[in-house]
Design a protein around this nucleic acid. Structure first.
Lengths: 213, 213
DNA sequence: GGCGCGGCTTTGTGATCACACTTGGACCCG
DNA sequence: CGGGTCCAAGTGTGATCACAAAGCCGCGCC
């Protein structure tokens, strides 16, 4: 068995991580129906590990479970989306603030580098890549907060929003790099916690707000 | 099939809800080792549904999974506990504030009734009952916030703290009803959002703070 | 008396199978 | 032409089995 980042460990875990990543990054549309046997066929495993993986994802809200036991990616109501946006704007400024005193120059450099990657993906119209790199920007910053439980909670929110974010991306035609990311970097440089909190909140809220149409 | 709250639906789901409740309410000590076959024996089912139930609980942080696949109730580090306490003090005041405009007199009455139950359980030294009723106080209030995703997130935190709260209860010898619950009720009556937020934060933080010993 | 080391037991993993339920659609009747 | 019915394929559920790895205990050696 190889120990690469992709195919390591137990089958159910590999399947879990793979599906989780695909959902979080918007590679699956909302409402997509999945079957245990189908997933098992795709990954070359039997139903048993598939069931474990999907149950885990259901517990995290990444998949929704119908009354008859069928799993599908969730199609969120507007209320739900706004609530998840509230959670992001509650948790993420806190994480950013905690990361602020620990943020050194190398970190800011990495964030700027990620920003240029985002700009490229906007040009290429790569929806999934854009979502992935955008989340990487946030995760890179929050990792400095040394708050794994809080980060895990935020990632759960991202996961629930994954399919919806994909749908959202189609509607909005970006042409410019989100200016809030630049504001975040600027606040990190000056060490201004209040400005940082505001910039993160604005960045988190902006995209999701126009979904209440 | 009966539709009672206890034995309804699929075996794995019944097992999941039962275990989740026991963990959240502190009926299991931290570090308790569980085996799939053992749980299956206890509940009279085979390993398959047990695996699904435990995987769900692992995904929620209610159980921790060792490298070799063994499950046990988590034994939290002090850092972890403080972080979870921070999450509570971040999320719960927000939920309370959202519930405030919707809180009517009947709700306040129910909360006071729950408070008297808590006082009785303190006298009876009923640790698990105390935890259960205390959480019921909070849940009853937060349900009015009409924010299911946020409430689910808070319950996840409660779940992770369950075994630790049980251990905590042993150390602290309560003799009086937490005065913060009375402050919460008072703030609800007067409609003072700021006082409510403070009271909830204080209530959430008090017990967990003295765990950093 | 302490410390490895061997085998045995327990445990998790994954495949397979039988069964019950849901579902989708063709078919028939009004 | 529309709506209800019934059947067949598909799907989730749970039990059982074979297997590999981990853990545990006692024996024997130093």
């Amino acid at each position: 068995m190889n120990t690469l980042s992709d195919g390591a460990g137990a089958a159910h875990d590999r399947l879990y991580r793979n599906l989780r990543s695909r959902i979080m990054h918007g590679e699956l549309p909302p409402g997509e129906a999945l079957t245990l046997r189908g997933l098992g066929r795709d990954y070359g495993v039997s139903m048993t590990p598939v069931r474990e993986a999907t149950r885990r994802l259901v517990a995290e809200g990444a998949l929704s479970l119908s009354a008859s036991g069928r799993v599908s990616t969730p199609a969120l109501s507007n209320d739900r989306i706004e609530e998840l946006a509230s959670l992001r704007s509650l948790l993420e400024p806190e994480l950013a603030a905690r990361a602020l005193p620990r943020a050194h120059l190398a970190l800011v450099g990495r964030l700027e580098s990620i920003n240029t990657t985002i700009a490229e993906q906007i040009v290429k119209q790569d929806a999934s890549g854009y979502i992935r790199t955008n989340l990487e920007f946030h995760r890179t910053l929050y990792l400095r907060a040394q708050a794994p439980a809080m980060l895990a909670m935020v990632e759960t929110v991202w996961l629930q929003l994954g399919p919806t974010m994909r749908a959202l991306y189609g509607r909005l035609n970006r042409t410019e790099l989100p200016k809030n990311h630049r504001l975040i970097v600027a606040a990190l440089r000056t060490g201004d916690e209040q400005a940082l909190r505001l910039a993160v909140r604005a960045d988190v809220t902006q995209g999701l707000r126009l979904l209440a149409s």
